[in-house]
Design a protein around this nucleic acid. Structure first.
Lengths: 262, 262
DNA sequence: TGATATGGATTGTCTGGACAATCCATATAA
DNA sequence: TTATATGGATTGTCCAGACAATCCATATCA
């Protein structure tokens, strides 16, 4: 009967803790609706503002989403696997690997994407990785990828203009053989890549592009590709919504990934 | 002069946008204090509640921290590099690699850690990766690592009890040669590892253990180590505060990390 | 000099109320 | 039957005020 706590004073933290416990215990399952604000006001005997602040804590933790004007709901935890090492293939974590590709076709889950191409002065962090000076330009292919209509990542790939000029990279179409193959065919073979992931809250722009709810952090992945001479051929910025992905990295043959400090 | 906007109605979003612009433009640098709530009430002509909600947006984005009772300050963006492939060595991103080790010693920045060891029934996700049934136990080494007194990660390593029993793993001391070496000496050589990263907001427990401010997401890393027969030897759960780390992964020799969809 | 007290500045928490925005189900009208 | 209007339920936004908590600088006192 999890009735009103006995504490004389109930604050937003107590409300959030109580509801969170119900969620992690499973009393409230994924997708379930939480009590309405009015019901919580009754249950905890506080003002509406305090109830809302308690709910805001859970929303900020990404545990709960508010759907106006229907109420608050427990968020669902499905995530896709993202394997930066192989390619951008993505699949739900509850689907066996083999099944995924066929299921994609079956269920009409074919990924779609929007592409837009521009010639820009790259941002400073991109320019630094590409080894471009201030007045050099780059080609950027900006893509938003969708699965079942919902955006699941953005990928902005920057190429030095001198490399991309006159190639299929300049065209805002899907490149079936891959941009790296285009570069390789022109003699620029990518032999090494470095990924840098930073974890942070999204900018308003990212929130909009990826339709992110509140309390959803993102991973921002910088991928820098190099040729055999160490020259940077491309820099990709991938934004991965935290609530839709698990990033999986396979490390075959590495003997000691978690070494204790020496 | 960036005076009060001319809009008839100023809401929390406008306040947050205006202040955010000042931060990203650099008018307000890292560590600078924002105007006080009272000053913002004057500037925007709204109630205190609305001003606070505007500030809460920036706090939620991790752009601003509140230090009671001193005011709101622009957060600083220093991050350490974390390379799961090599080891747990961590260094600030603004320090050249070579300098770091000596500087660590110079500045007394030697990492410290707390260790606590327990025999537990592992959580379901750990048990699944270790291939343990419901009634089998595991040894967990829970560590919190500090740099300059501030916690920068937690690492909970689970070992099947049958493997760890009677070894140095059971002792709540630093294992100089590394836990993996201990296992290897007992004939369990780890030859492969898989990392899984999920991005999310921290639990209250994690907030407490890592002294996380609001608006700070975390990366939760599952590292599963296998021997040559594919048997899982250990599972480590590493929690990385998003505001303190960049995760760097080197991919030598991989030809096409960012392949376009075929 | 040194310890203690006081007050000020600032943010944190909570109350209570008013109106707007959104979606849904139902009732009504064409 | 179909389209339109209405009202209800619920969350979103904003206002105004009260008091608590925390840290700091200053003044006071021993």
């Amino acid at each position: 009967m999890a009735a009103a706590p006995k504490r004389r004073r109930v604050g937003k933290v107590e409300i959030a803790t109580d509801l969170r416990n119900q969620i992690v215990r499973g009393d409230l399952g994924e997708g379930d609706q939480l009590p309405t604000e009015a019901a919580l006001i009754d249950r905890y005997g506080t003002s509406r503002n305090t109830v809302r602040e308690g709910l805001a804590i859970l929303v900020g933790e990404g545990l709960v989403v508010a759907k106006r004007p229907h109420g608050y709901f427990v968020r669902d935890g499905h995530r896709m696997e993202y394997r930066p090492q192989s390619d951008l293939t993505v699949r739900p974590d509850d689907v066996p690997k083999d099944v995924f590709l066929t299921e994609l076709a079956d269920a009409g889950r074919t990924p779609t994407q929007t592409i837009d191409v521009a010639i820009v002065r790259p941002p400073a962090d991109v320019a630094a990785r590409l080894g471009l000076s201030d007045d050099e330009h780059a080609v950027v292919r900006r893509r938003v990828r969708f699965l079942e209509g919902a955006p699941y990542m953005t990928n902005d790939s920057y190429f030095p203009l001198t490399l991309a000029q006159g190639t299929a990279i300049m065209s805002p179409e899907d490149i079936a053989r891959g941009a790296n193959r285009v570069l390789a065919d022109a003699g620029h073979v990518q032999v090494r890549a470095v990924d840098e992931f930073t974890i942070r809250m999204p900018t308003p722009d990212e929130q909009h592009r990826l339709a992110l709810g509140p309390g959803t952090p993102v991973a921002r992945q910088f991928t820098t590709g190099y040729d055999r001479h160490g020259k940077a051929l491309r820099v990709a910025i991938t934004i991965l919504p935290g609530d839709r992905h698990t990033i999986v990295i396979d490390r075959p043959g590495l003997p000691d990934p978690e070494a204790e400090p020496s």
